[in-house]
Design a binder for these strands. Sequence first.
DNA 1: AACTGCTTCAACCGCTGCACG
DNA 2: GCGTGCAGCGGTTGAAGCAGT
Length: 262
Amino acid sequence: MGRKPCCDKVGLKKGPWTTDEDQKLISFILTNGQCCWRALPKLAGLLRCGKSCRLRWTNYLRPDLKRGLLSEYEEKMVIDLHAQLGNRWSKIASHLPGRTDNEIKNHWNTHIKKKLKKMGMDPLTHNPLSEPQEQKIDKNPKDLSQTSLNPTMETMTMNDIDDFCTDEVPLIEPHEILVPVTDYAPPSTSSSCDSSKLLKELEFPDFEWPIDCNTSRYDDNVGLWDDGEFNVWGDDDESFSSPQIQCPLRMPFDLQYSWTYI
DNA sequence: AACTGCTTCAACCGCTGCACG
DNA sequence: GCGTGCAGCGGTTGAAGCAGT
C-alpha cells in the first residue's frame, strides 16, 4: 500500500500565486497563526496543497523576509557557512535573518558559485581550483560538516572579501528597498507582478509591529539596528534569535507600502 | 523590431527525518 | 520495533525577463 499523497492533486491549482490567493493566505495566517499546513488550504479557502501554501508563506509572504540582493557581509557568511555545512541551505539560512533557504540556494547557484570560480576557488570544496581537475576531491557535503573548517576559508579575511568582485552586484540596503508605491515598478515575474495589487488592497488593522519600523535600519555589518536593537548570534545552529525579525523593512516588496501605513 | 541564448528565481517534486500510535 | 502521516529540506524545472546580435 502506497503512502497517501500529501494532497489530493485533482482540482488543486499549481503554478504562480495570484493576488487573491496571497491575500487569503496572509489573512488566514495573521488571524489564526501557522497551524496545520495540511488543513490550512481548506480553512483558508485555497485550492492549493498545504505544501504549496507553506512554501509560498516561508519563501515569499512571511513579513520578516528581507528582500533584495544579499549584502557583501551576507555573502561572506554564506560562503563561510557553506564551507562548514555544505548544501544545508536551511541551516545556512538560519544564520541569516530574513533570508530563506530557497533564496540563499538560488543566490549561491547564480552568483556566488560564479564568483568563487572567478576567484579560482572550487565552490564545492572551497579549495583553490587545481589542475589537473581529476585531483579534485568530490566531497560529500555531509562529510564537510564533520571535518574542520577548510583552511582556505578559515584564513579568509575581510580584505579578501574586499577583493570579492562586489562591483558586479549593487548592494541594496534594507532602507533602500522601501519605495513609494507611485515610483515602484513591481517585478514583472509571475506572482510577484500579480501581488503588486496587494499594496492597496491589503489591510491588517489589528496587526501592529513591535517597534517604529519606519525609522529603524539594519546594519548587516554589525547585526545592529540603528534604534539600538541587535541580533544575537549563537555558537550553534539553533541558538540564533532576532528581536527585530518582524520589521516591515524586511517585507516583500509587494507588501511594504501597506505596512508603512500602520 | 525580431530573434536567440542566457540568467534569474518562484514553485514544484521527491526524499528524509521526526513524532506518534 | 514498525507503520503512518506530516513538515521540512534540497535538487530541479520552467516561465519570464534581459542582453546581445
